[in-house]
Amino acid sequence: METRRLYNRIAVLRSERGISRKDLAAAIGVNYQTVGYLERGEYNPSLDLAFKISEYFGLSVEFIFSTKPLKPLSEELHARRREEG
C-alpha cells in the first residue's frame, strides 16, 4: 500500500521551544530515533501519535501536519495578521 508523504513542523516547534528529541520522545512515548524519522518525513505517524504530538505542543493537528509542503511559520503568521487586519 502506497502512503502519501506527510509534512510536519515537529523539528521547528521542538527547536523553537528548546526541547531535545529525547525529551519529546519520552513525552509522547516513542523511541527518540522515531522522532528523527518523523521530523525527516521518513515515517508517517498513526492518528493516535499525531494527536499525542499536537497535545504536547498545544497546537491543532492540521497546524503541525499537512499533506502539502508547509509554509515557514513567519510567512503564515504574516498572512494571518494581514487577514485579521
Binding site: 521542538r14 527547536s15 528548546g18 526541547i19 531535545s20 528529541r21 529525547k22 527518540y32 530515533q33 528523527g36
Partner: peptide, 9 residues
C-alpha cells in the same frame, strides 16, 4: 538511526 539531536535542541 542517528544520534543527532538527542540531547541538543
Amino acid at each position: 538511526m542517528d544520534d543527532e539531536g538527542v540531547e541538543t535542541t
